[in-house]
């Protein structure tokens, strides 16, 4: 049985998602350690964010979907539904 390697991901939460991490501030980065090859959906589950509330995700400034496979060193930003103008 093989053991999956771990990797570090830098995460930022925004808007309503901040409430799911006590002490977090919008845009303040924190590091998460998780298994190499994890998807964003797995990271969302790990962070216990309600999946339907995660509306927009940026990885290194590029919009991606929840099935994106995270690469070591990625910077991830999660947003709940927002609008303005």
């Amino acid at each position: 049985m093989s053991v999956r390697e771990l990797m570090i991901v830098r995460v930022r939460l925004f808007a309503n998602l901040v409430q799911y991490r006590p002490g977090a501030k919008a845009g303040q980065p924190f590091d998460v350690e998780l298994a190499a090859g994890s998807t964003l959906a797995e990271l969302i589950a790990h962070l216990q964010l309600p999946r339907v509330q995660v509306k927009v995700i940026f990885v290194n400034g590029i919009g991606v979907s929840q099935d994106y496979v995270i690469q070591p060193g990625d910077e991830v930003g999660f947003f709940s539904p927002i609008g303005g103008g």
């Binding site: 925004f14 309503n16 845009g27 940026f58 930003g77 947003f79 927002i82 609008g83």
Partner: peptide, 18 residues
Amino acid sequence: GGLNTYGTAVLINIMNEA
């Protein structure tokens, strides 16, 4: 919701991320 809580300035962070 998003606009009533954070106002239109909620876009600052998302445009910055983008």
